[in-house]
Amino acid sequence: MFIGLANTWVAILLMMIGLYIVIAQGNLIKKIIGLTLFQTSVFIFYISMAKVEGGTAPIFSSDISIYSNPLPHALILTAIVVGISTTALALSLIVRIKEAYGTIEEEEIQGLDEEQD
């Protein structure tokens, strides 16, 4: 059981590190880095399930009979693109926040907002 699911559990560990950074860190850039880590680990989780023992990359060749599952690969290609799109948008928000607030620390931004109320 421990060998059979080791891949998945390592992916879970990585996911949780990412999620922890997103929630606990106050620096906006670090939050985004955590988010990227979280998403990339989910990709690892997906790709791990596609693997077949003894299989090869799903590129057709007449002398190969076992291939890994191509569907998760196609899904994750899409998900990677979605991930980088989110990152790009988030980073542009961070730049604007830096210009408007002069800081990229969560606590300081909230402090500035409360001052204004």
Binding site: S48, K51, V81, T87, L91, I94, V95
Partner: peptide
């Protein structure tokens, strides 16, 4: 290693390429 060569290609160009570049530009501002 998991036979996902297309995904590897994409992840290398995105994870190690574009997103790093964008992060560096942003860090140079912030």
């Amino acid at each position: 290693a998991m036979d996902a060569v297309d995904v590897a290609f994409t992840e290398a160009s995105v994870g190690a390429g574009i997103s790093t570049l964008l992060l560096l530009v942003v860090i140079s501002v912030t």
